[in-house]
Every structure is written in structure tokens, then in C-alpha cells.
Design a binder for these strands. Structure first.
Length: 489
RNA sequence: GGGGCUAUCGUCUAGGGGUUAGGACGGGUGAUUCUCAGUCACUAAACCGGGGUUCGAAUCCCCGUAGCCCUGCCA
């Protein structure tokens, strides 16, 4: 039987890379085994719900190429896929559990519960922390009276006292909890909405989920879920808890410690293939030292047995390297639209970006020395307008008075150069260097700085060729004046 | 306080009783070169500690330590 898995985010904020990795593993697992991947939205918390979060989650998943087989937008037989639209189901289930005596109504106020917690905290109770099961002892007539009075209440599961609750985790092996450690967990809140636990169990069962692959912060909740499955008379699914992803300092990932949001990486100019590949390698390795893989290769190689139990640190440096690898594999044509929009954002007028052939040549010059799309756009601005200043350290080094006679030799030589090609330029520079009795570098470095404003970039001669004779001479002239002025001062 | 999970170079990891503990990122050195990037060589860098089991432990067991998670009418 092919597996059915789900990714079930809460729309309380952006999709962070940890969630994306969980989604990715679910996706890879489903595809590898020919199963289905469901997207379900767990919007049962009215207080923390954010409408924009939904858009952001969808966009993130799609950008990473993790198309879900069933869920919002995709449809499917097990819908609706928003928990907020399934409340009748949860209430019905809670009513049945109540009826069967497996759950009970609890009328305790939040104040009483808070007081109880504070007391327990103070007493550092050796065991039996959590709800004191006060309302479990209420008689039927008391309950009727409270109900008749319209007293607000929640529904709690009756958790057995001293029982071993065991399950097999596909990544961590056998895990056992003593039910005495567990609370009588709330199933239905007083606002009539289910808690995560109830909604999750009911939906996983009704949607035919066979494997629950989720973050390991859920591992302590799993025995509660097992008990709930039992109370409902259902067989629990198979569990596998994925390790967390940590910030470089070993702490939790957050916006403050680097970009935690998937879409932030998109905005920062990363390629989705690179982020996806990198995320896959956080907690999983196919073996044989394989790292760069297509989605298809990942699907073919993915198994839960090879997923790590240990938390992994998100190393952005390696992501950048990987992005560079993917960037080199991209054609200039496929990069054009993205780079052009970054150029526009940098303030270049449409007129400057009109010649597509020129644009492609510029991209070609910068692609191989870039790691991100943004590097291509950001470092190539001088192909569209004269440099506004010169890199300070480089100017100190190359724009000294001694450079003046050199520039004076280059300028007229350039005047009649025909054709203005990289070969002709290189011949010219080398010949000139010979005549002047200096190394070619003495000519090349000041020229590069004069023309680009910076000390690094593409090969000088291809750069000059693309810029064209007129522009090159204008910029050299400007640099000459700059040096002469500085010399006088 | 209780419970659970985890532990190999700085980072991601390979390794499932016998290996010079391998690869990648990052670092260092050198070569190439007009710069940067790249590329190519070379190089430094790890089994948390202590007990067992065994002829033999990174691998299995126990204890300790550390980190993380849970202990919510959040998910």
C-alpha cells in the first residue's frame, strides 16, 4: 500500500527553513514510495492566525518545487483541508469520547489552572505535575448543573494512570513513556475549537495518513496521540521525528540570526534548487559522498533510514557555495529576467537595459565569478554608467602620479585602435608595456580601476571590448584628471 | 523538579566490531593569472568523559556530562 503523508503547518507566520525541510522530507518520502503528499492547514488557534502566512506558505512550497497532491488549491477526496472548516468533525469525536466515558468535561478556570501551575513550580513536585484532574471527580449531577448554568468548559481525555505507552520511531527506534507522566490533555477548548492534538489525530486518521513525519518537538506529544488513537479505537500511524535545524550559534533559528524564512532566501537571490538541495542534506545523506543532486535523484535515493537523529546547524556559507554551483549550471538566457529585475531595482533606467544582447554579454562576464544572482547585478553596474568614485585602497595603490605617463601613453594608442577587440587590446597593452619598459600589470591595474571603479572583476580586455572605445577613453580621461587633481592637492 | 531525545573535524556528514576514521563547506600553503572569482595540487582539523562486553570498539551496553525538546484551553 503506497504511503500517505502530510505537511501540516499552522498559519501563524512565515515558513521557516525548518518547516520547509520537514515538508521536503515528506515530499521525498511520498515520491520515493509512489505515495501521496497532502497539505493540511492547522488553523485552530484563533488568536495566532495570520492570513498573510497562508500566502507565504503556499508561495514558499511552490518556489521549492514541493507541489502537494491534495490540499488547498489542489483539492482531493479527504477535504476540506483547513481544520477551521472541520470543527464539526472534532466536536463529534469529542462527544463520542464523552459518551463512552473516555473523556470528561472540565470546568476549571484558567485562573485556577495558572495557580495550580505556579504552586507546582514552587513545590518542584517530584512527579504528577500537570492538571490535577479535579473535574474528573465531578458527579453526574454536578456536571448537569454546571452545564445548565452555561459554565464554560473544555473536554479532556482520561489518561490512564500507570501504563507504559510505547511506539517505534523510524528514526529513533523504540520510545517508551509512562502514562503517569502525562496530563489529561485538553481535546476541545472552551471556544469549541479542537486543540492541535485532537484535530491532528482525527485528521490523520480520516485522511488515511500512514506515516507521520514531523519535527522532533512533537516527540513528547506522541504518547498522548497514541492514547487518543486508542480511545477512538483507531490504529496509530507510523511515526518518524525529524531533527531540528539550529542557527549557527547553536540556538533556535530566527529572523535575527540570519534569514529563517524561505522567502527571505528567495529575496536574497538564492536559487530554489540550491536551497532545496542544501536543506535535503541537513539531516540526510544519501551516502557515497553525494551532495549535488537533482530533485529526481533525491527522490530516488531518499530513505528514512538514512535520516539523522541529531540536530543540524544551518551553515549559510555552504549554502552560498552550493548556490554558486547551481548558478554556474544556469544559462545566461535563463538568468536574464532575474538579473534585469535586480538592475531595475538598483535604479537603472529602462533605456540602459534596452539592448538584450548587451545585457547577456554582461551577465556572461559576471556569471562564472558570482555565487548569487544578486552578485551579478550588483557588481556590474559600471557597464551601464560611469563609476562615481574609486575604491579607496586601490586608488592609493594604482592612482599615483607615476600612473599619469602610463595613462598618457594608453589614451592616444586607444584612439585609433581598429577593431576594438579583446585580442587587439591585449596586443596593444602588451606592446605598450614593452615600449615603456614596465610590466603589463602596471598598465592593466590602473586601467581597470579607471574604467570600473573597483579592483576586481572580469578580464580587462573583454571588459574594455564590451564597454567600447568611446566609453573607455572617456573614463580613462576622467581618471587622469582625478589623479592630476589629487597630485596637486 | 520530572520525563524524553541527542552526542564523529569549526560546520554538514560517511562509518552499523578489525579503516592510515573518508568526503564536502570553510581555513591554510603553493601553482595558474591583469585583479577577483575559478581551477589544480598539497595541508591542518574529529570519534564528549568514564566504566564495561569482546581477541578487538567511533560502532554494542551502563553511568556521567552537556545541549535541545516537552511538562499550555500554542502549534
Amino acid at each position: 500500500m503506497p504511503p500517505v503523508v502530510r505537511f501540516a503547518p499552522s498559519p501563524t507566520g512565515y515558513l521557516h527553513v525548518g518547516g520547509a525541510r520537514t515538508a521536503l522530507f515528506n515530499f521525498l518520502f511520498a515520491r520515493h514510495h509512489g505515495g501521496r503528499f497532502i497539505l493540511r492547514i492547522e488553523d485552530t488557534d484563533q488568536k495566532r492566525y495570520q492570513a498573510e502566512a497562508l500566502t507565504e506558505i503556499f508561495a514558499s512550497l511552490k518556489w521549492l518545487g514541493l507541489q502537494w497532491d491534495e490540499g488547498p488549491e489542489a483539492g482531493g477526496d479527504a477535504g476540506p483541508y483547513f481544520q477551521s472548516q472541520r470543527t464539526a468533525l472534532y466536536r463529534g469525536r469529542a462527544a463520542e469520547l464523552l459518551e463512552a466515558g473516555k473523556a470528561y468535561r472540565c470546568f476549571c478556570s484558567e485562573e485556577r489552572l495558572a495557580g495550580l501551575r505556579a504552586e507546582q513550580e514552587k513545590a518542584k513536585m517530584a512527579q504528577g505535575s500537570g492538571y490535577d484532574r479535579h473535574c474528573r471527580r465531578l458527579g453526574a449531577s454536578e456536571v448537569q448543573a454546571l452545564l445548565a448554568a452555561g459554565a464554560p468548559h473544555v473536554v479532556r481525555l482520561k489518561v490512564p494512570d500507570d501504563r507504559a505507552v510505547a511506539f517505534h520511531d523510524l528514526i529513533r527506534g523504540d520510545i517508551t513513556y509512562d502514562s503517569g507522566q502525562l496530563d489529561d490533555l485538553v481535546l476541545l477548548k472552551s471556544d469549541g475549537f479542537p486543540t492541535y492534538h485532537l484535530a491532528n489525530v482525527v485528521d490523520d486518521h480520516m485522511m488515511g495518513i500512514t506515516h507521520v513525519l514531523r519535527g522532533d518537538e512533537w516527540i513528547a506529544s506522541t504518547p498522548k496521540h497514541i492514547l487518543l488513537y486508542e480511545a477512538c479505537g483507531w490504529a496509530p500511524p507510523i511515526f518518524a521525528h525529524m531533527p531540528v535545524i539550529l542557527a549557527p550559534d547553536g540556538g533556535k533559528l530566527s529572523k535575527r540570526r540570519g534569514a529563517a524564512s524561505v522567502l527571505d532566501y528567495q529575496r536574497a537571490g538564492f536559487l530554489s534548487e540550491a536551497l532545496r538541495n542544501f536543506l535535503a542534506l541537513l539531516g540526510w545523506a544519501p551516502g557515497a559522498d553525494r551532495e549535488i543532486m537533482t530533485l529526481e535523484e533525491m527522490i530516488a535515493a531518499f530513505t528514512l533510514e538514512r535520516v539523522q537523529a541529531k540536530a543540524a546547524v544551518f551553515d549559510e556559507t555552504k549554502l552560498e557555495w552550493m548556490n554558486g554551483v547551481y548558478l554556474q549550471g544556469k544559462s545566461v538566457d535563463s538568468l536574464l529576467a532575474d538579473v534585469r529585475s535586480l538592475w531595475e531595482k538598483a535604479g537603472l533606467p529602462a533605456r540602459a537595459l534596452a539592448d538584450e544582447g548587451y545585457l547577456k554579454k554582461v551577465i556572461g562576464l559576471f556569471k562564472e565569478r558570482s555565487k548569487k544572482v544578486g552578485d551579478i547585478a550588483g557588481n556590474s553596474l559600471y557597464f551601464f554608467s560611469d563609476p562615481q568614485g574609486y575604491e579607496e585602497q586601490a586608488a592609493r595603490k594604482y592612482f599615483r602620479a607615476e600612473a599619469l605617463p602610463l595613462l598618457d601613453a594608453i589614451l592616444p594608442a586607444l584612439q585609433g585602435l581598429q577593431p576594438f577587440s579583446r585580442e587587439a587590446l591585449e596586443d596593444l597593452f602588451r606592446r605598450l608595456a614593452g615600449e615603456l619598459g614596465v610590466s603589463a600589470g602596471k598598465l592593466i591595474h590602473p586601467t581597470r580601476l579607471a574604467v570600473s571603479g573597483v579592483s576586481f572583476g572580469p578580464g580587462l580586455f573583454e571588459m574594455l571590448e564590451l564597454l567600447g572605445g568611446e566609453t573607455v577613453r572617456r573614463r580613462l580621461q576622467k581618471a587622469r584628471e582625478w589623479i592630476a587633481a589629487g597630485d596637486r592637492a
